[in-house]
Computed example of a mutant assay.
Amino acid sequence: MLELREAVLAEWETRVRACLDKAKELSHPILIDTLPAFYDNIAQALTADYPRVDAGDGTTVAIEHGGERARITAYDHESLIREYQLFRWAIYDVLYREGVQLSRSELLTLEASIDNGIQAAVSGFVMAHTALRERFAAALTHDLRGPLGTVSAALELILMVNDPARIKTLAAKALDNVHRMDAMIHELLDTMAFHSGEQLALQLAQFDIREVILDIQVNSAGAGRPQVDFGDRAPIVGWWDRSALRRAIENLVSNAVKYGRAGCPITIQADEIHGRLQLSVHNEGNPIPPEEQESIFQMYRRSEKARHTRTNGWGIGLPYVRAVAESHAGSISVDSHAERGTTFTIDTPLDCRAYSGAPTVV
């Protein structure tokens, strides 16, 4: 069994990448995960007089595998179960090909190991997802309390003052924060709908993307905030959803503010290339590790650095940007390096009217 381990793992990886869409783009270290250790446990359980009943006896290796699938990949529970089933058949086929025969007792041990591994992995998967949702709920509550507190304070002051001008100012402040909360909730609902397989309901209109970027640039200015640079460029007119695209760019700018190097400007660039819009947001600072560059676009997931800092976030900002880009028949990519900085790029057709119903990857 141990001599055939690499052959089994190679066979399994080939089958998983062919059968599971969610596994195709995973790097080898992420895909293989804890399965080598799980395989070794199976070999130990099949060894006479070795004190291990099955591969899951006295170990959490399968639980950790399920937890990592929940935290790092876009797997659902069906994908997790399916990869263990493929693991079972990879073992059987390699053993058959190599002329290795198992006794009835060994077959039962192997079957029990796989079945118990599936149960433990699903348990770890559910526990990790529960923890992610609880963290998300806490972040959501924290972020909503700010504007809600402002609205409450403004309304209390309105009840106490008689100056019409003062009342109008307070009412405008309250309304602005209500709109802010409404935008946050809509972003959440849109992102959840997108990740359930639904298209975003786009309201396409013709406009110059520079108008949106310049408005974001003005609204981003303020004491203590990084400078947002946007050069003097030619008009880029296209058919997009103004509100959705604006929110997506704001999320990228907000992300650059949170994680960019203090004192360094944020750069927005927009270009028209071959009938497409390429819009990028760049910041200097610590790079996003290659193994995290895909997972940050998944629901409720944040980079390792973000999780271990005091920076608040829901883990839906970048997934929302992906939802907007893909619903416009485009894409969102990231380029991140210690010397180049980090650049997020939205790439969509100039005229999205003919593609608004294009399929998206969930």
Rank of each mutant, 00 (worst) to 15 (best):
Trp240Glu: 14
Arg242Leu: 11
Leu245Tyr: 01
Leu245Phe: 08
Arg246Asn: 10
Arg247Ser: 11
Arg247Glu: 12
Ile249His: 04
Glu250Phe: 00
Asn251Gly: 14
Ser254Thr: 10
Asn255Leu: 08
Ala256Trp: 01
Ala256Gln: 05
Lys258Phe: 11
Lys258Trp: 12
Tyr259Trp: 13
Pro265Gln: 07
Ile266Val: 12
Ile266Ala: 00
Ile268Trp: 04
Gln269Glu: 13
Ala270Ser: 13
Ala270Gln: 10
Ile273Leu: 14
Ile273Met: 06
Gly275Tyr: 01
Arg276Asp: 15
Leu277Ser: 10
Leu277Cys: 10
Gln278Lys: 10
Gln278Arg: 13
Ser280Gln: 04
Ser280Arg: 09
Val281Cys: 12
Asn283Gln: 02
Gly285Met: 07
Gly285Trp: 03
Asn286Val: 04
Ile288Cys: 01
Ile288Tyr: 02
Pro289Met: 05
Pro290Lys: 04
Pro290Glu: 11
Glu291Lys: 13
Gln293Arg: 11
Gln293Trp: 03
Gln298Thr: 14
Met299Asn: 02
Glu304Asp: 04
Arg307Met: 15
Thr311Tyr: 00
Thr311Cys: 05
Thr311Asn: 11
Ile316Trp: 08
Leu318Arg: 07
Pro319Thr: 08
Tyr320Pro: 10
Arg322Pro: 12
Ala323Glu: 11
Ala323Arg: 12
Val324Ser: 09
Ala325Tyr: 04
Ala325Gln: 11
Glu326Trp: 10
Ser327Thr: 09
Ala329Phe: 14
Gly330Phe: 10
Ser331Tyr: 13
Ile332Lys: 06
Val334Pro: 02
Val334Phe: 02
Asp335Ile: 05
Ser336Ala: 05
Ala338Lys: 07
Arg340Lys: 14
Gly341Thr: 04
